[in-house]
């Protein structure tokens, strides 16, 4: 077992893990932060996307031990301080960017990663950036709308594909 400590959503946490413990399992099973989902467990779907030291990673494809000392952000830390939805979450709700919602935590985290580096992406930027996030419900169109809306842009301009 390896001892580790990290910051998750601003709070210091620590634990004892096996070498093989994945970051997503540490988050879900040890910290009970079950908002981060496991869709595929084969690095394909992005449902498990979290931020480690400010960048998006697939938490099913990173060892918990590798995140020792890191600053981790998950979907649980995304809402505003008063508990209301943040601007990305609100845009997903307003624009029907989700149906079953299984992919949504990963979509929101990937979107936050995009908007941090590119505050006003165009449609192609959004689709390229969400390449690693699979949604089997929405057909993506409303997700793209939600991301553009979250960046403060006019969404009527997005043509249906």
């Amino acid at each position: 077992m390896t001892k580790l400590s990290m910051t998750v959503n601003g709070k210091p946490v620590s634990g004892n893990v096996e070498g093989r413990t994945l970051l997503v399992d540490f988050l879900r099973q040890d910290l009970h932060l079950t908002g981060t989902h496991v869709g595929c467990d084969t690095s394909q779907c992005g449902a498990c996307t979290v931020h480690v030291n400010g960048v998006a990673v697939k938490s099913c494809t990173m060892l918990a031990a590798e995140a020792d000392g890191a600053d981790v952000a998950t979907i649980e830390g995304q809402a505003n301080a008063d508990g209301s939805l943040n601007v990305i979450q609100q845009a997903f709700q307003d624009h029907h960017g989700l149906q079953c919602g299984f992919c949504t935590p990963g979509m929101v985290m990937a979107t936050a990663d995009l908007l941090k580096n590119n505050p006003t992406p165009n449609e192609a930027d959004v689709r390229h950036h969400l390449d690693g996030n699979i949604c089997r419900c929405t057909g993506y169109h409303n997700i793209v709308k939600a991301v553009l809306a979250a960046s403060g842009q006019d969404v009527d301009a997005v043509a249906a594909e």
């Binding site: 690095s43 998006a56 990663d113 690693g132 996030n133």
Partner: peptide
């Protein structure tokens, strides 16, 4: 290569 999360690791 791959997607943003893959490129970050």
């Amino acid at each position: 290569i791959g997607d943003p999360a893959v490129r970050n690791r």
